[in-house]
Simulated assay, not measured.
Amino acid sequence: MTAFKPALILESVDEIPESAYIWHWKTEHHFPFHKHNKGQLTYVEGGAAFLYTRDKTYFLPARHYMWVPPGVEHYFQHRYPANYVRTIYFFTDEDDTSDPFYTRTGIYPVNNLLLEMILYTSKWDGNVLPGTKGYRFVKAIKNILPDISEQPLPITLPTTENTRLKPVLKFIQENLAESLTLESVGQEFNYSERTLIRLFRSTMDISFFQYLKLARMIRAMGYLLETDKTISEIAWDTGYNSVSAFSNTFYKLVGKRPSDFQ
């Protein structure tokens, strides 16, 4: 594998527009917000991560991949140890406009076929040029994505750069195990309940309680996949005093019971 610093990837990905660009990275890396002219598939092997865009947070659990369309500003962070981060940056072609899949950011399950194909790309590194066997293989991956990726992971968490609301969201994220209410969070920032309600609705088009519920479920998904915590411990650690209430909320949002998701 070619030795280069992660930051150089940002410069290298778009150097040859007609190529695919492949990299498999084993260590933790940190990118700022950035974008590419190529669509991006990223699979975190043996770990989980969060994908951040300018307006949403996506949880990327094990056995799922993220798709980021060309031109979308983003970065992602590991939250749990990973063996490899495997990324393919795809050339632009007529498929990108003919199928709406390629224009939507999303997190999708990885079936056995796609997993084997992603792992097979480890034999290439850097640019994969048209006319090569590698290019034809990568193009086959790109072509099957819309057919095998019909149901994105249903939970995304809105975010904002609003200077009044941003510290509130940080506080909520850091205290998800606590009994958070409009009153208690408002007191922390000297906001009235009415002000806090208006901030959430006007800034992110979501209620305080909707945000809190989504944040707790995303945290729970991470715990379920990447820790040995029991479901009752996870319920407690995400602010639920009742396992049944936690399980019912999880089912309504994710479409699976916590035990099935785990």
Rank of each mutant, 00 (worst) to 15 (best):
T238F: 00
L114V: 08
D95H: 10
T92S: 09
A220W: 06
I9C: 08
N175Y: 10
M204T: 02
I107M: 12
L182C: 03
S202M: 13
F31I: 06
I155P: 05
E233P: 01
G126V: 08
G131D: 13
L224H: 06
A62T: 01
P17F: 03
D55S: 13
P100E: 07
S12A: 14
I141E: 14
N112P: 00
P130W: 06
L169I: 01
Q187S: 11
D260G: 06
G39A: 14
M221D: 06
T238Y: 00
I88V: 15
Y102K: 00
L115G: 02
L182N: 02
M217G: 03
L224V: 01
W67V: 02
F91S: 10
H74W: 04
L182D: 00
A49C: 11
Y75N: 07
L214W: 07
D93C: 04
Y120P: 05
T227C: 04
W25M: 11
R164L: 15
F91Q: 12
G134Y: 09
A48M: 08
K123S: 11
I148P: 06
V243N: 03
T53S: 14
G239T: 07
I9D: 09
K256R: 11
E11W: 06
H30S: 14
F171L: 05
F59K: 02
A245C: 06
Y251D: 12
G71W: 00
T103V: 12
S244D: 14
V85W: 08
E183I: 12
N162C: 03
I88A: 09
K38Q: 13
G255R: 02
P17V: 04
G131H: 06
S207M: 03
R219L: 05
L157G: 08
L8P: 00
E15G: 03
D55Y: 12
W23T: 10
E28C: 13
A48K: 05
Y223R: 05
I148M: 05
S122F: 10
L129C: 12
D93W: 01
R198C: 09
S244R: 14
S149L: 04
S184M: 05
N175C: 11
R63G: 00
F171Y: 12
S242Y: 00
M1I: 14
P154Y: 04
P130C: 12
M204W: 02
Y108E: 04
V13Q: 10
Y75K: 10
A49F: 07
L115Y: 10
S19L: 03
L214C: 05
H74I: 00
K35R: 09
D95N: 13
K38C: 11
S179K: 15
Y191Q: 08
F31K: 06
A215P: 05
I231M: 02
T227H: 02
L199I: 05
P158E: 00
T156Y: 11
N111S: 08
D228M: 02
Y84K: 09
Q40N: 15
E174G: 09
Q187K: 14
L182G: 05
M217T: 09
V138E: 01
N175W: 08
F90T: 07
F91D: 08
P17L: 02
